[in-house]
Design a protein around this nucleic acid. Structure first.
Length: 596
DNA sequence: GCCGTTTTCGGCCCGACTGTTTTCAGTCG
């Protein structure tokens, strides 16, 4: 376990605290920006900053320069940094607690803490509430009745959120957005709709649902916004102005709408798709070229202030000499510099997927875990409809503990016979099948299947289903040991995460990557909504090391086979191309890959 | 304090909203 004090989260918080302290002390505002940028960089880092420090590469993180690197170096070495402590001195810790409340930033927090003598960080929010009830906040200079009331409401919101601030799984948000879009399109003034924000970028979890609407002329805006607020599931209208509106459609889900005419639609779409850090980098890039970029268009920094508008994002990116950047990779990593060199790869697409290699059937294999609900032939029939050339049946291994190898071997043999029998009489035009099996990796790294049983399958996919809470080193050895068995071709849902429920287990990815590459074993991108595992950032790192991926549905019913769409989106966010994905191979090539 | 396809110095993303203001500071996305 990483020590909390040195986690990315802790360092992010530390750097933000420095920025806040500088703000309170009226330090040069660019210094404040620098610390906040460094905090952003650490927050979005795809590895532990402590590891980066150990490699001596802190300064290579964009946003961390010589000064901050020095302070962090001291912090990692000694557990504190003289400079940081000096900056934070004089700022009571309760200030940083108060900043968790919406609308309370560093300055307001500091004023409140000083004026009301809120010195106890543990109780500072409760103490502030008490002060509000005694009407003390309204009397502080630069505060008033309205801000006192706003703070009271913000505290209420904060306390409510603490228990339920979960983000939605992507597929849920996606279908909700489609429902809203379909409703919007019932109005003839709505020319086009698009998802915005993290939803358009297909992030694994979504906060709010943001939707863009194109209208023919500005005078249609009111009608469209009014139509939006009458959406049947609306619980409450948060706000509705001339350009945007916000409604609450479930206790913790809000939907935002933005309307824009055709001529400026591209700029709006680009801006509200984000990500924030992509936008900042794009604006900095534009500025270097002498242009100022906003959600409305582009202006020259000097000379004429005429606003240039863009109908499409393609036109906007192209204006700056950039290749089009797909929403999925607009995360502010290095996409802009690559787009400048025309080096954005063609990302994999759903229609390039030729088969699904992780599907559970209803066959009674006396399984260790849950079964699916469709038979083998029903699965193949569905795969034909999806246009696949092949599918792999991967029921869970038969229950392993307390059952003799002999019994399991019999079960496995009977299953193979059963499957082959079905398809000897029932022919399908396009889709072929492979017999696989999903096998538990036991805590000691052995697998939950007798070696003899392996002869009854074409391939194994292996996965951790127990003892998640293991030491990093042991977990790594456990997985690598499992990869040594014959016919193991895929490591399934490799981090074990369940979004909102269970964190990723700790494992040394570099070691897993090099072993997978050496043994020609693919890592799975599991499309199950709560998994979406591998996560996109790890996908990108694995691909850089030359590791292959398999995008699978892990379907337990035929409808769920369609969820593979989301796995493809994860792959895109990880910069995967067609060739990186083994199940884009044709049937015959895939068959060769299995036995090579 | 960071950073470089006009710069190792001189810049630093943009705009909206809100409240307490008399021209702007603070916060947010």
């Amino acid at each position: 376990m990483t020590e909390d004090k040195f986690s990315n989260k802790a360092i992010t918080h530390l750097l933000r605290s420095v920025a806040a302290a500088y703000l309170i002390k009226n330090e040069n505002r660019f210094k404040i920006i620098a610390y906040n940028k460094a905090a952003d960089a650490v927050e979005h880092l795809d590895r532990e900053i402590k590891d980066v420090w150990e490699d001596g590469k802190l300064k290579e993180i964009p946003g961390i320069g010589p000064s901050i690197a020095d302070h962090l170096d001291e912090y990692f070495k000694k557990g504190f940094s003289k400079h940081i402590d000096w900056v934070l001195s004089g700022i009571p810790p309760s200030v940083f607690e108060l900043m968790k409340i919406r609308t309370i930033g560093p300055k307001k927090a500091y004023k409140l803490v000083k004026s009301l003598k809120l010195t106890q960080p543990d109780t500072v929010i409760a103490d502030l509430k008490k002060a509000i009830s005694e009407n003390k906040v309204a009397n502080i200079p630069s505060f008033g009745n309205k801000s006192q009331e706003d703070i009271r409401q913000a505290i209420e919101l904060y306390e409510g959120q603490a228990s339920k601030k979960e983000r939605m799984p992507l597929p849920y948000a996606y279908s909700l957005a489609q429902e809203i879009s379909n409703y919007l399109k019932k109005n003839p003034k709505v020319k086009r709709t698009d998802a915005l924000g993290s939803l358009r970028r297909m992030v694994a979890t979504i906060g709010d649902i943001d939707i863009a609407v194109e209208i023919a002329s500005a005078k249609d805006a009111d009608e469209v916004i009014s139509h939006f607020t009458k959406y049947p599931k609306t619980l409450r209208i948060e706000n509705a102005g001339g350009k945007k509106a916000s409604i609450i459609i479930a206790p913790n889900i809000s939907a935002d709408l933005r309307v824009q005419e055709k001529e400026g639609y591209g700029s709006m779409l680009q801006y509200f798709t984000g990500s924030k850090s992509h936008n900042i980098k794009l604006r900095e890039f534009a500025l270097r070229k002498g242009y100022s970029l906003s959600e409305y268009g582009v202006k020259k920094v000097r000379g004429s202030q005429k606003l240039m508008k863009f109908e499409t994002e393609e036109a906007l990116y192209s204006f700056f000499g950039l290749q089009y950047i797909p929403p999925e990779i607009r995360e502010g990593t290095n996409e802009i510099e690559l787009a400048l060199k025309n080096k954005i790869p063609k990302l994999v697409e759903l229609k390039e997927i030729k088969g699904d290699l992780h599907i559970h059937s209803s066959y009674d294999i006396k399984p260790s875990h849950d079964r699916g609900s469709n038979s083998y032939d029903e699965i193949v029939a569905k795969a034909e409809k999806l246009g696949y050339e092949y599918v792999g049946f991967t029921d869970h291994n038969p229950r392993f503990t307390g059952v003799s190898a002999e019994v399991i071997n019999k079960i496995m043999k009977r299953r193979k016979q059963y499957i082959d029998d079905i398809f000897s009489t029932k022919k399908f035009e396009r889709t072929k099948y492979f017999i696989g099996i999903e096998v538990d990796i036991l805590p000691d790294g052995t697998i939950a299947l007798p070696e003899k049983s392996i002869e009854y399958v074409d391939y194994l996919i292996v996965a951790i289903h127990s003892s998640f809470d293991m030491d990093k080193d042991l977990m790594t050895k456990r997985i690598i040991k499992a990869l040594q068995y014959p016919k193991v071709k895929i490591l399934c849902h490799p981090t074990g995460r369940l979004l909102g429920k269970r964190d990723e287990y700790e494992v040394d990815w570099d070691k897993i990557f090099s072993e997978a590459k050496k043994k020609d074993i693919a890592l799975e991108i599991n499309s199950w909504p709560q998994r979406l595992d591998l996560p996109d950032t790890i996908v990108r790192k694995a691909l850089e090391k030359g590791v292959k991926m398999a995008i699978n549905s892990d379907a337990h019913s035929n409808e769920e086979m369609e969820l593979l769409f989301y796995g493809v989106e994860v792959a895109k966010r990880g910069w995967a191309k067609k060739n990186d994905i083994i199940n884009t191979l044709s049937y015959s090539d895939f068959k060769k890959w299995l036995v090579r």
